[in-house]
Simulated assay, not measured.
Amino acid sequence: MAFFVTLRSTALGLSLLAMAGCSAISSIQTASKPLDTFELSPLPAGTVSARQSRRYLEVAMPSATGAFASDRIVVKPTPLKIESLPDARWINDATEHVQLLLVRSLANSGRFALVTAAGSGPSPDYVLMTDLRAFQAEVGPESVTIVIRSTMSLLSDSDGRVVSSRSFDSSATAPDTSREMVVAAFDAAMTAHLTEVLDWIAKTPLR
């Protein structure tokens, strides 16, 4: 009888080890699965009419909460809960991605002789500071709404004077919850956001 008890215990132990091994392999396979990568579009030249200047502009890295200091696409099922869009990521951390979109869109506008990211060009005449307050998909009972909010300040680099400051709030609705539709709605909201930013910059007097 003791033999059979021992045999059953051994078989159970091997079974548990096998299950644990399968679980570990499954976890490794899931961890190694590449995430689909998405990139938003900067504004092309001619989107906003702007008077050209010979000034240099530096776009600082946006400040934001930790949720946006990551390449994951933020989803908020409730106002206080933060999740990520499954199996998807931005091409850069969200803050860096927004910075590069601003750099490329402002460069395409022709408003400045040179537009660079912070620390990558000569001493600028102006610096654009951004506080990224929202960059997320908000899940409602029947739809998904993309929300992008920011406050931007244009500073004179020579004396730190605030030339102009303004808040922006853009949104777009995704027709369904698929990753492609959510990202397409992000692109629409970002296009509206960038258009407002460029229009504000174009109308701001520069010395």
Rank of each mutant, 00 (worst) to 15 (best):
N108L: 09
N108C: 03
N108H: 11
S109R: 10
S109T: 05
G110K: 06
G110C: 11
F112Q: 03
F112C: 08
F112R: 11
L114P: 00
V115F: 13
A117E: 11
A118N: 10
A118D: 11
A118S: 14
G119C: 09
G119D: 07
G119P: 01
S120A: 14
S120T: 14
S120C: 04
S120Q: 14
G121A: 10
G121W: 03
S123P: 00
S123H: 08
P124V: 04
P124Q: 12
P124L: 11
D125T: 05
Y126E: 08
Y126S: 12
Y126K: 13
V127H: 06
L128M: 13
L128I: 08
L128G: 00
M129L: 14
T130E: 02
T130P: 01
D131I: 05
D131K: 09
D131H: 09
L132Y: 04
L132C: 02
L132W: 03
R133F: 05
R133S: 12
A134C: 07
A134G: 08
A134W: 02
F135G: 04
F135P: 00
A137Y: 08
A137V: 09
A137T: 07
A137P: 00
G140R: 15
P141A: 14
E142S: 13
S143D: 11
S143W: 03
V144I: 11
T145S: 07
T145L: 05
I146S: 02
I146L: 13
I146M: 14
V147H: 13
I148K: 01
R149A: 05
R149D: 14
R149T: 08
R149G: 00
S150A: 15
T151G: 02
T151N: 00
T151F: 02
M152R: 08
S153Q: 12
S153D: 04
S153N: 02
L154G: 03
L154A: 08
L154E: 01
S156G: 11
S156Q: 10
S156T: 07
S156L: 05
D157W: 13
S158P: 00
S158F: 08
S158H: 02
R161K: 15
V162M: 08
V162A: 05
S164W: 01
S164D: 06
S165R: 12
S165G: 12
R166L: 09
S167R: 13
S167E: 12
S167K: 07
S167D: 09
S167N: 09
S167V: 10
S167Y: 03
F168K: 05
D169T: 05
S170C: 07
S170T: 07
S170Y: 04
S171P: 01
S171L: 09
A172T: 07
A174L: 08
A174Y: 01
A174V: 06
P175Y: 06
S178E: 05
S178I: 10
S178K: 12
R179G: 04
M181G: 01
M181Q: 15
V182W: 03
V182D: 01
V182R: 09
